[in-house]
Structures are given as C-alpha cells and as structure tokens.
C-alpha cells in the first residue's frame, strides 16, 4: 500500500470555537493506482491533500488519525524531515500552473534545481534527466524549450512542466489538486492521458482531487466522494457511477449534465452544503436528503473503514 490515511481529523481552532474541517477520513491508494477524490467546494478534498503533504495553514492542525506512506508514518514527522518527504517521495500538482512556476527562472533551471536537491546527480546528469522528463510529459522539442521562461508557454504546456517538476524526484505518490480545471477541454484530455500514463508506466500512486466526475471517470480506478469534511462513499469508479449507494452521490451524478440527452431538467439536490460551523447533528447530508428517516437526524453513520466499498449512510448499514 503506498498511502494509507486512517481516521484523519483536521481542526481549525478559532475564537468562536473549534471548526472540524475533516472528520474521520480514511482511504488508501495502491502502487500504480489512481484514486479520485471528488466533492463540491468546501467538502474538504483539497484540505485532505494539504494534510497529507504536511502543509496545513496554521492554525489548522491534525487532531487525530494517522497517515502512512509506504509503511512509514509521516503525519508526526518533524518539519525538516517532512520537507524532504514532500519533494522526494510525494510530488504535488496544483490547479494554476502559472503560480506553481517561478516566473524569473527558465523551466530548465527550475527542473535542474529540483533534481539536484533531491537526487545525487551532477549538473550534466541533471540536465539529461530534465530533458528526458520534459519529453516524457509530452513537450515537443524539449532541447529548444529548455531555456524558455514559464510565460512563453501556453497553459497546457505549463501544466506539463509542473507535472515534470512533480515527478522529477521519482515520488511514489503524486497529489494532483484540480490539475485540469484551469485548462480548455481539449487540453484537459491531454493532461488526463498523461496522468494515467504516469500511474501505469511508473507505478506512481496518484491522488486526483477534482470537482469533475467526468475527469475521474476517465482516469481513476477508485473514487472517494467527500461531503462536509467526511468521506461519504468510496469504491471502484464503475460501481460508484453506475450504482451509487449514498443519496448524495446519486444526486451528484444526476445533476451532472450529459451530452446527447434531450433538453430537459436535471435531477437536482436542493439547498447547499452546510458551512463547517453549522454541520447538522446525525448525518451531515440529512437536511438535503430525499431518503432520510429518524435515525439520520440523530446518529451519525459509521465512518468508512480503509479499503471497503461502502457508503456512510444508514440505508446501507449492516443489520
């Protein structure tokens, strides 16, 4: 197992009491697997990524739970050691490729710098490696583009460079937070292909965070659906899409517009996701749920265990 997250709880202490932003989040990713993490804004999907790489914004902190990377616990490492894990073992790709690159250095310099920091290579070897990375992520004529600055690249090309940077030190885990959101559809498809290929050929475990179920359907083997800081459903992509167990997942799938269907109303979930300071008791989804019953108002469904195909919903509780 490359990554295991067990019972992760993230809190933000504030003057008006402590906000629980993530509550009992558990999942795992295998070598070469792409796990999609889907949810609406504020569901806690990006926060989960930040917690794993140890970059929670203070005062946010991990209040409970464990994070294991290749059999080593990493949530309690000292900052200096965590920094090394972050560059070397975990690569990160953020949404906006422009802000992830330093505009003052050429992409060649940035790649070499990253390689030299993390791998025991000389300048010349680092340059060779940088060039092969660039061609691996699909940048045509890498020799010619090596000394270009980020602003000379288009959005799609920049995102490729960011991915090259993220995999420069051959990490075992790649966390991609909305890597295709800022890109046009045609470019989006290219980046999806690239991520799939990396997982397949390099055996990198990929955690793909996105709000776009379509991207996940194309890329991932398994998907975790998040709602109000909790994982409400997890399982193989095919099963979750075809036969969602949790009413929230079902509603979410219904509200996604699909091509080729006649002009008509979409299935809609009324209301909005609760704010962190107003999560209702019982199941967090109960005020919007068409299938709620008494138990949902009072008792919170059991959190999902690692590795299961399950939904955190009383409809599917073991008798």
């Amino acid at each position: 197992m490359t990554l295991e997250v067990k019972g992760l709880k993230v809190e933000f202490p504030s003057r008006r009491g402590t906000l629980t932003a993530l509550d009992d989040v558990s999942f795992s990713i295998q070598r070469g697997e792409v796990l999609g993490v889907v949810g609406e804004s504020g569901a806690g999907k990006s926060l989960t990524g930040l917690a794993i790489i140890g970059l929670l914004e203070p005062p946010g902190r991990i209040a409970a739970g464990e994070i294991w990377l290749e059999g080593r616990r990493i949530d309690n490492l000292p900052p200096e050691e965590m920094r090394r894990v972050r560059g070397r073992r975990i690569g990160v790709v953020f949404q906006d490729p422009l802000t992830s690159l330093n505009p003052l250095f050429t992409i060649g310099q940035q790649l070499e710098e990253t390689i030299l920091t993390h791998l025991p290579l000389g300048r010349a070897a680092a340059r060779d490696r940088a060039l092969s990375l660039l061609s691996e992520v699909g940048i045509p004529a890498p020799e010619a583009r090596y000394d270009s600055y980020p602003h000379q690249f288009s959005g799609g090309m920049r995102q490729r460079v960011v991915i090259a940077l993220a995999i420069a030190a051959e990490p075992v885990l790649l966390i991609a937070d909305e890597p295709t959101t800022a890109l046009d559809v045609s470019i989006q498809a290219q980046i999806i292909e690239l991520l799939k290929r990396l997982a397949r050929e390099r055996g990198t475990a990929v955690m793909l965070i996105t709000h776009d179920m379509g991207v996940i359907a194309e890329t991932s083997q398994r998907v975790a659906v998040m709602y109000a800081g909790r994982v409400v459903e997890i399982g193989p992509v095919h099963e979750v899409i075809r036969a969602p167990l949790h009413p929230y997942t079902a509603g979410l799938m219904g509200s996604i517009p699909k091509i080729g269907i006649e002009k008509k109303r979409l299935v809609q979930i009324d209301g909005a996701m609760p704010r962190l300071n107003a999560i209702p008791p019982g199941c967090a989804f109960n005020p919007r749920c068409p299938k709620r019953f008494d138990r949902c108002l009072a008792e919170r469904p059991d959190p999902l265990a690692v590795g299961a195909r399950a939904a955190a919903c009383w409809l599917h509780a073991a008798p």
Binding site: M213, G254, P257, K263, L266
Partner: peptide
C-alpha cells in the same frame, strides 16, 4: 458547483 449548477440550469429552463 455541479449540484448548484443543476439548480440554476433548471431555474433558467423553467
């Protein structure tokens, strides 16, 4: 967000 998008699209159709 997707679920809100559905609400707005439905409203516009109505």
């Amino acid at each position: 967000d997707v679920s809100v998008q559905a609400q707005i699209l439905n409203l516009m159709i109505d």
